[in-house]
Amino acid sequence: MKRQSRLDAPVQYWDEDLPKQADDQKAPPQLIRVNEINDVWMEIPRYVNHGWGGLWFSTLMTLIAVIICVVFVFIPSFPSDLLSMFSVYLPVFIFFSFFIYCIKRVLFEPRGAPVRFNRKRQKVYVYEYQRSVWPWKRWPAVIKVFDWADIQGERVQLAGHADSGHRIYCAVCKPGTHEVVDRFVLAWTVGNLRDAYGLWSHCCHYMEARPVPKNPLLTDKPADWTPFRTVRWPSDVERESTTATGMM
C-alpha cells in the first residue's frame, strides 16, 4: 500500500509524517544543537549546512566578471555607439546585481536563524529572514508566531550532491484540521535518521512538559566570517517568548 501523508498539502520530497505531539515517538528525545533551554523556553539554531562554499565561489566569480566588463568599457578601441554600450552595461548590471545578492547572503543573512519554543505559553516563535531574488530590495527579518497545538512534523529525505540526508519540517495547520497554512524548517539536512527523529521527539517532549536531556549532541558552532549576521529579536517578542506571564 502506498504511503500517504495525513496533511492535505505535504511538503515537497515528503517521506513521512512524524508522530503527533502527545504520541509515542520514534526515538528518545535528543537535541542536536541548542542556544538556550530552561523550564520556560528553549531556542534551537537552524544552521544551513549546504551550499555555503558555493556561495563564496559564486561571489568571487561574479566580482571577476564585473571587473572584466568594466575594464572592457575603458579599452580605447571600444565602440561608443549606443548598441555597443548597452551590450556591455546590461551584463555589468546583471553581474553586479548577482554579486550584491551573494554578498547579502554570505555577509548579512543569519546562518543559524533560530526557533523558540515557549512551554508555558505553548507558542512557537520562528525567526525568518525574508530573502528576495531582487537583491536591491530590503531583506527584513520576520517573526512568525504559532500555536504548538497546530504544528505537525514532516520528514524529507534528500539525495542531492551537496544536500543529502534528512530534513525536518513543521507544517502549521488550521486548528483542528490537516489544512496546511504555513510551514517552516525545524532542522536542515541531518545525516543520521535517528538524530532527526530525536530532535522532533525532544521538541514534543519539551512542549508536553515531559523529561528531556539538556545537553545537545553538538556544542560547536559552524564557521562564520562576519559580525553583520546578527539575530535580533524585537523587544516585545523577546519579552513574550522568554517569559511565562500571560498564561491562560
Rank of each mutant, 00 (worst) to 15 (best):
S201D: 04
D224M: 11
R232W: 05
T189Q: 06
T219A: 06
S97C: 01
M207N: 07
N192W: 01
S97H: 00
I32G: 02
I68W: 03
T177C: 13
R105K: 05
Q30Y: 00
F228H: 12
Q12L: 15
K123W: 02
K123G: 05
V88F: 04
K2A: 09
V115I: 15
I32A: 01
P114K: 05
R119S: 12
P216G: 01
N38Q: 06
V180S: 06
G191P: 01
Q130A: 14
R183Y: 03
G160A: 06
M42G: 02
A187Y: 02
P10I: 12
F108K: 11
S58H: 09
R131S: 14
P45D: 00
R33K: 04
L82E: 11
A159D: 11
A22Y: 02
K137N: 00
A171R: 08
Y169C: 15
F98R: 06
A65G: 12
I37G: 08
P135W: 00
S164E: 06
A187K: 13
A22I: 03
L7W: 00
V88G: 04
L217W: 00
V70E: 07
Y169Q: 14
W52D: 13
D81R: 03
I64T: 13
R232E: 08
W200G: 09
K104V: 00
R121V: 07
V106S: 02
V73M: 09
N49T: 13
T219L: 02
V181N: 01
D236F: 12
L186I: 12
L218R: 14
D17K: 11
K174P: 05
I103M: 08
P135E: 00
M207L: 14
A223C: 04
A196M: 06
L90K: 01
R105N: 09
M207F: 07
D17P: 14
I100S: 00
I64N: 03
N38D: 15
T177A: 06
Q130F: 09
P29F: 01
V190H: 03
A113C: 10
K123F: 04
P45T: 03
P135G: 05
R183T: 04
V231C: 07
G112F: 04
S164P: 01
D236R: 14
